[in-house]
């Protein structure tokens, strides 16, 4: 037995990750990656691991995205 909501979230995760892999614009990829992390943290919250969810939301979706954007602003936006 599995919750339908979990199933939908997992499918969304896979779709988002594939689009991260396919997209050429790095900034869009980073934003999609933040979306991925947020969905992941939502999923973990649903799986009753709230502390991991809160840490993932703060670090995975927050800090990592900020750092990636900082790095992109210093290097270059388009993947060649």
């Amino acid at each position: 037995m599995i919750n339908l909501f979990h199933f939908v979230l997992i499918l969304t995760l896979i779709v988002v990750v594939i689009s991260v892999a396919k997209i050429k614009d790095l900034l869009s990829a980073v934003i999609l990656f933040a979306v991925y992390n947020l969905i992941m943290s939502l999923l973990w919250q649903q799986m009753r691991a709230p502390d991991v969810a809160i840490t993932e939301a703060a670090l995975g979706a927050g800090v990592t995205t900020v750092l990636l954007v900082a790095a992109i602003s210093k290097t270059g936006r388009l993947e060649k």
Binding site: L26, F33, N37, M40, E56, G60, T64, L68, T75
Partner: peptide, 18 residues
């Protein structure tokens, strides 16, 4: 692209956390 590689690494890691 190295930044894409970093994203891939993060995806791998969060999959393991999952």
């Amino acid at each position: 692209n190295l930044i894409k590689k970093v994203i891939g690494l993060n995806v791998m890691d969060s999959a393991i956390f999952f």
